[in-house]
């Protein structure tokens, strides 16, 4: 076991990136997409999730700890690389470099985002409506909105391209043809999931976002 420690760590890093971190990302953006139907729909979604039994246990063991491991070990991996797109200007080498850049960007963004939302909810014991209002306030600031858009696209890119490497790391896509088809599939996923996230962010940023709720 000790001799194959790095193998174990790498495989764990790869697995956790998909289950549960990747799964959570998609679920999270899917929930947020409800915001495009107005604050009321978003609040209902949030209340439904907060009604799941043992939600705090799930948050700690299925989101926080896996994310922490994936982030910290991922940072170690990213800093090990000697990026060389200057000499090897190929698509896959760019993806390799971008995977590391977006990984670090996502890590920074997620720490900030968790502080601004989840931690504030815990500190001030907010309800779902207050959370919607908080998010609305944050995203009305154009600088925050721009940073959120960058963080979101970085996270979705890291997820989509990470799925492509995940399938290689576990030996699912072996040959060049399978890997090429996989690139197309995950490129489509990148576009679709980005669309979900971006439309939710823009919905939160609308000045009358909370007003829509009052009308209901």
């Amino acid at each position: 076991m000790s001799r194959e420690r790095s193998f174990f760590n790498r495989r764990l890093h790869s697995l956790l990136g998909v289950i549960p971190v990747g799964f959570f990302l998609v679920e999270h953006l899917f929930t947020n997409y409800a915001a495009t139907k107005g604050a009321q729909a978003f609040v209902e979604q949030v209340e439904w999730i907060w009604g799941i039994p043992f939600i705090t246990v799930l948050e700690i063991f299925f989101i926080f700890l896996p994310l922490l491991y994936h982030g910290v070990y991922g940072l170690y991996i990213a800093l090990q690389a000697k990026n060389n797109v200057g000499n090897f200007n190929t698509f896959r080498n760019w993806m390799f470099t971008l995977q590391r850049i977006t990984g670090v960007a996502t890590l920074i963004y997620v720490v900030w985002h968790v502080w601004e939302t989840r931690v504030q909810v815990a500190l001030y014991d907010m309800n779902a409506t207050q959370l919607a209002n908080l998010t609305h306030d944050i995203l009305q600031n154009p600088v925050n909105l721009a940073l959120y858009l960058i963080g979101l696209v970085a996270a979705v890119f890291h997820f989509s391209n990470g799925m492509w490497t995940f399938l290689i790391t576990w030996g699912v896509t072996v040959g060049p043809r399978a890997q090429r088809v996989s690139s197309y599939v995950w490129a489509v996923v990148f576009v679709l999931v980005s669309y979900l996230g971006i439309s939710a962010l823009l919905a939160f940023a609308q000045s009358d976002f909370m007003g829509q709720m009052a009308q209901h």
Binding site: F7, R11, A81, N84, R92, N93, F96, T97, W164, I168
Partner: peptide, 10 residues
């Protein structure tokens, strides 16, 4: 070993 590959495919 193998696990250090980062799939840059260079």
């Amino acid at each position: 070993g193998l696990q250090e590959c980062g799939n840059s495919q260079n």
